[in-house]
């Protein structure tokens, strides 16, 4: 006869599933909503952390090592993903001199319609914004002298 699962073990599993689900959802939100490629990368890593939490919780509930072995596999895949993603970020940054992901929207299928309105159009339609002092405004410093002559090419543009 199969033994009844303990209610206490079930409750401990629920804790891990709840926190793991919250981390996964927050990572998904960051991946969808943020435009900085580095923050998107961190959000993807956070989704992996949520999954790892649920796996460890399930492994503890079932009383075997499978969940922890899966989490080790997730760790190595996350390491691979980090190396490839950071290499890609360097390449994309070199092409556009920006970490903004919306500059790459033309690589989608050309015949597909854009689900989101074009942001340049949106920006033109949006009314002028008056800066309000708050957490999103930054201090403006007056330049303290004549700007010196720059030596030829800036180091960000040098390619050799």
């Amino acid at each position: 006869m199969p033994a009844e699962p303990e209610i206490l073990a079930l409750n401990a599993l629920m804790n891990y599933l709840l926190v793991g689900g919250a981390l996964f959802v927050l990572g998904m939100l960051g991946f969808l909503a943020r435009r900085n490629m580095i923050v998107m990368f961190l959000s993807a890593e956070m989704m992996l952390q949520g999954t790892a939490l649920t796996l460890v919780g399930f492994g503890r509930y079932h009383g075997n090592w499978t969940g922890q072995v899966f989490t080790i596999v997730i760790l190595t895949v996350a390491a691979c993903e980090a190396s490839i993603a950071l290499a890609l970020i360097v390449v994309l940054y070199n092409r556009r001199t920006s970490l903004d992901i919306t500059l790459w929207r033309e690589i989608r299928e050309p015949e597909l319609e854009c689900p989101v309105k074009d942001e340049v159009l949106e920006r033109e339609e949006a009314e002028e914004i008056e800066p309000i002092p708050g957490p999103e405004s930054y201090p403006q410093l007056t330049p303290a002298g004549i700007e010196p002559a720059h030596p030829g090419q800036a180091w960000t543009e040098r390619r050799s």
Binding site: L26, L32, A33, R34, R35, I89, L99, I101, E136
Partner: peptide, 29 residues
């Protein structure tokens, strides 16, 4: 990477704007 790529431009506009935040928040939650 942040220090190399992002910080030399100062505060970037794309860090202060989100991609359709309402829809994303609704979907995720």
């Amino acid at each position: 990477f942040v220090i190399m790529l992002a910080q030399m431009e100062g505060k970037a506009a794309y860090d202060r704007a989100a991609r359709s935040p309402g829809t994303s928040t609704f979907t995720c939650f």
